[in-house]
Amino acid sequence: MGIRKTGEIELSRKEIYVPDTLAEVLQIKKRRPDAVVWAGGTHMLQQNAPEADSGPRPPVLAIHGVRELRRLVRSDTHVDIGACVPIGRLLEVGERFLPVIIMETIAGIGPPPLQNTATLGGAVCCPDCILPPVLALRIMDTRIEIRRHGNSRWIPLTSFRRETNLDPSEIVTRIRIPNRQWPFRLSRTFGRPYPPGGESLAVMAVAAVDRQIITNLRFAAVYRSRHLLRNRELEAAFVGKRLPLNDRDGRELEAAIAQDPVVRETFTPLATHRTVHVITRFIERIKPV
């Protein structure tokens, strides 16, 4: 082993890059697209047991110390969160400007000492896994910035899949959350969403009302941190309805959720019941303002 230059450690069979700036990160990714990006590294440690180490493996690109990726910037319309901002820091300062439902869900990530290491960028990029904070981000129209050397683009989080949207030379750099508070919101989590695949269910719902009319409604559920229920048609059907809603609306909602193909094919009867129950109770709680 030897340190070749600042921030780059050479190993006998593998390397770890520890860049200080985003320009360095993009340069390394251009040169070594096979490098595996680690933000906090918490998920990667879970996945890569040391005993599984046999033979050459791709280098690690550790981006936790990159200044540009640890910034929080607030504007009138949105909040930009760097991919490497620790969850703990968001909890310290986010109360003033992050939507409440985001704060509630990130507070549920692990015990507080884990929050000093884990990042929102890591949660977004967690492969084949939708954790509760990511579910909340999805229903809030969050966008993410993807960068490569000499290029950047923004895409909606709802259409982001790491396996298909992220070129090997690209990384997720920022998360943009619209600056909007929802007067009605609910988040419920059953079981432990992490590690993914276990028996867990997360349900989120938000709504906005203008006097007696529902002006916006979003809801989503994720079972076992993998199977996502999001029915925009059903959400749209409730927009414009006058409050209070009648029993028929509730029954229609229950039936529509239970008939959703994702729910029918992947949710257990208990998960279906809980999803229906949480969302219908949320709808009932929406009051004129």
Binding site: G41, M44, L45, G110, P111, P113, L114, N116, A118
Partner: peptide
């Protein structure tokens, strides 16, 4: 190894972290 038992807590610099979940 999944961060729930808290028995691996250590201080890294001035921050308390989970030893098993910090590279």
């Amino acid at each position: 190894r999944d961060g729930s038992c808290l028995r691996c807590l250590v201080m890294l610099g001035e921050r308390v972290v989970l030893g098993c979940k910090t590279p």
